[in-house]
Design a protein around this nucleic acid. Structure first.
Lengths: 230, 230
DNA sequence: ACACCCATTCTGGTATGGTAGTGTACCAGC
DNA sequence: GCTGGTACACTACCATACCAGAATGGGTGT
């Protein structure tokens, strides 16, 4: 899993290297820099008007996060996306969300009823305003609530890491936006099953819910196979 | 989480920085360097008779793997172990192994019967010879076989990463050695349940199996609380 | 005797110069 | 016209020098 909880994330700018690291990471994850794009230490250094050393440090960290690929004595490129990596992240997320659902269902005492229903209303409101950014945040918040209900707050970090791996595939995809109503319906059913303490039903809808994203991801892979390594 | 599939692992020595990185990583994961130990770039550089730059690069990579903690303008120390991190790794492993077991059980067609039983015999043989190293490898291999039976070979990478997080707690613990007979018994039952396609039984024994390690880990945390951050 | 301040000495961070390995383009030879 | 080799340009890698912030120890004032 990736090191998204690195201290550099807390305060965005401590050193010059951090600045470059954060900037490049944003560029890559937001697909402003596409996989395969060539980068050179000297070039980026000149661009930011700093020396090559901090750039090199940023490159190393991005390489560790599998966002860059440093090829010794050759060139550094934005790392092509690994289909295996995507599969793995999806598998981990499914596994974790299922266990979270199970724990939440077993321990559920109704204390989170109000919070969950409030979340659903907020999601609906954001959809009516067609505010995708808000909906994305609410989706994150919703799954976080499930983790809290399962008394496994740290599970959200894992899910968050999985999302980080797959998120950049969703940004350019308008397919996702069309499916948000289904996503909201899923969330409603998840809450219903949880409140009813219907474990089997909850696990089934959780699978279906996560499966939707898989379809969107597959579609993207077909559209943009040039971004992938294999 | 960790970058165990980094290209540096294939060929252990490509650059000077790789050499230092691998050496230090070994030292830390094998507990030759205990959490809290101070390290300085200059010191290590002198030790290896190289400049500070490659050492610095190695430090950065180890910091990304959460094995070191670089504290700017102060000192670099072997990062204290995070109890949260341990919990998270255990949770992820349990979740993944459960899903692997489920898939393996659903798809099981008996073709792996011979391989699995052979694995069990090898495990027994290594225990009779009190060869812990062999048993550890066979344990890895056994869980890998389960992933293959589930047709999720990449799941083993996740499990492997989780193990990497927790393994260094087991090395100094003699408690683990005493429990290996139980581990073998668990493996036997796992195979039995799988062959019988008894899903509920398989999930139950999988939980119990992984729970044993949790107990050992808890014991270690009580013994060596000085190695932990919180 | 105690507390506080300042200098010294650590630390990691940055800048720059030089090195060796790798692609590429150009030119010679066939 | 095509192929092969060689020179060149570019890359990441390493070494060295310098800088700024942080800790620490000793000295001084109270």
């Amino acid at each position: 899993m990736s090191a998204t909880s690195a201290p550099s994330e807390v305060e965005a700018r401590r050193t010059t290297a951090d600045t470059v690291f954060n900037a490049l990471r944003e560029d890559i994850t937001k697909m402003r820099l596409c996989p395969g794009t060539r980068l050179s230490e000297a070039e980026v250094a000149k661009q930011y008007d700093i020396s090559r050393q901090p750039v090199r440090e940023a490159f190393i960290r991005l390489d560790n996060l599998r966002l860059l690929q440093i090829r010794p004595q050759r060139a550094t490129v934005v790392r092509p996306i690994s289909r295996e990596g995507i599969k793995r992240a999806r598998f981990v997320r499914l596994s974790v969300e299922l266990e979270v659902a199970r724990l939440a269902c077993e321990q559920y005492d109704g204390s989170a009823d109000a919070t969950l229903h409030q979340q659903l209303e907020l999601q609906q409101a954001s959809l009516e305003k067609a505010d995708m950014t808000a909906f994305t945040q609410l989706d994150y918040s919703f799954h976080n609530q499930l983790c809290l209900a399962a008394e496994r707050p740290h599970a959200m970090k894992v899910i968050s890491d999985c999302k980080a791996t797959t998120d950049r595939l969703c940004i350019p995809s308008a397919v996702y936006a069309k499916r948000t109503p289904e996503v909201l319906e899923d969330h409603r059913e998840i809450v219903d099953r949880l409140v009813a303490r219907d474990l089997d039903g909850l696990l089934a809808i959780t699978r279906e819910h996560l499966g939707r994203l898989d379809e969107s991801l597959d579609a993207f892979q077909l559209e943009h196979s040039e971004y992938f390594e294999d």
